[in-house]
Simulated assay, not measured.
Amino acid sequence: MKNPEAGAIRDRGPGARREQVRARVLAQGSARLDELATLFDVSLMTMHRDVDALEAEGWLIKTRGAATANPSALVEAGVRDRTSAMSAQKAAITAVAARLITRGQTVFLDDSTTALGLVPALVSHPPMTIATNFLPVVAEVGEVPGVQIQLLGGEYHARQEACFGRQTIEAIALLNADIFFMSTTAVRDGKCLHRSEATVMVRQAFMAHASRRVLLVDHAKFGRRAAHVLCDVSEFDIVVTDDGIDPETLADLRASCSDVRVAPVGD
């Protein structure tokens, strides 16, 4: 289906079109080049050039006939871009994960936009204590009677809108959570991977001080690569993914974790 705004985007030049292509692929996780060409009313050759340019900038990875979101780009992207990426899958995953929330819990949330989606469920179960290094969580919670926020300070990273470093890790060590919800950049060979060493260190601290650990990971992250090993998948009590995961990957995941829950997208 052709984008009704394709003509206007085309008239504004290749820069405007590439921004729309970038946003669409980051939101979906991947897209076929022929479908993008049709959507933006350009030739397939033009779309190849657009994707080549976005790949050179580090946003996308070009594969045969398709473009996928570069996981490193999503780390460097702001919260708005990360929130829009795989939004339907994240909503499905958090809907399943929300069933693990009960009144009176102390909950750790990492700086992932997937975990951020749990805030409405958390604030509906007071009394509740939420501890996080992610400022958007604080903004989402606001002032809710019976919900206490522990903002874990440290070195503030503006693009990630989160705190990292030694002080953050020390603050985590003073707490003990009933449950920790987190995501990761990539899952490969039974390991969770992340591009940022600072993020890895903070999430490892969260894991060390939580009674239960829950990994929230959409299907597009399986098979990706990232520089730093965060942990083995087997270290999680529960893994929640979406139904876009392929059967072989799901079988491997279940070999690593005994409790894997698959969220239906669109239900």
Results as ranks from 00 to 15, higher is better:
G266P: 07
T63H: 09
L175Y: 08
N70E: 12
A37I: 07
L175I: 12
A158T: 15
L253N: 03
H219W: 07
M182D: 08
A85H: 12
H209G: 13
R10I: 12
K221V: 10
A131S: 15
T249G: 05
Q28P: 00
T184H: 08
Y156P: 03
A115C: 07
R159E: 14
T63M: 09
V214K: 09
R12E: 10
D50W: 09
T185S: 15
A23K: 13
V233S: 05
A177E: 02
R203N: 15
L33A: 08
S124M: 04
R213S: 05
V79G: 14
F40D: 03
Q28V: 02
I149H: 01
A6E: 04
L175M: 15
R166F: 13
E76M: 12
N133Y: 05
T129R: 09
A173I: 00
P126C: 01
S87H: 12
Q20C: 14
D252T: 06
N3V: 06
A177H: 02
L33G: 10
D246F: 00
P136G: 10
F180M: 11
V239A: 06
A8V: 10
C231R: 11
P126S: 01
A23S: 13
E19K: 13
A158L: 14
L116C: 00
I245G: 04
T106A: 07
A31W: 12
I61N: 13
A77M: 10
V229W: 07
D237K: 01
P126T: 01
L151E: 06
A67V: 12
L151Y: 10
R254L: 05
Y156G: 01
I172D: 03
I169G: 02
T184L: 06
A95I: 02
E197I: 13
R82F: 06
Q204D: 12
V217G: 02
R103Q: 08
M182E: 13
L122S: 08
S183K: 01
G190S: 08
L39K: 02
L74C: 13
V137N: 04
L39R: 10
T83W: 08
A97Y: 14
Q150K: 13
E35D: 15
E35S: 14
V217Q: 14
D242F: 03
L39S: 04
G7D: 14
G223N: 08
L122V: 10
H219L: 01
P14I: 06
G190I: 10
N176H: 14
A173M: 00
V144A: 08
E35Y: 12
S256F: 05
I130N: 04
L175S: 09
C231Q: 09
T102V: 07
W59S: 06
Q105D: 14
N133C: 07
E140R: 15
A251D: 13
R24T: 15
A220P: 01
I169T: 06
G29D: 05
F164H: 06
L100C: 04
Q160F: 05
A66P: 08
F222N: 07
A8F: 03
P14T: 08
R188E: 05
F180V: 10
E19C: 02
A205D: 07
G153L: 13
G266S: 05
L100I: 04
G29F: 08
A56H: 09
K191S: 07
G104M: 08
R80S: 12
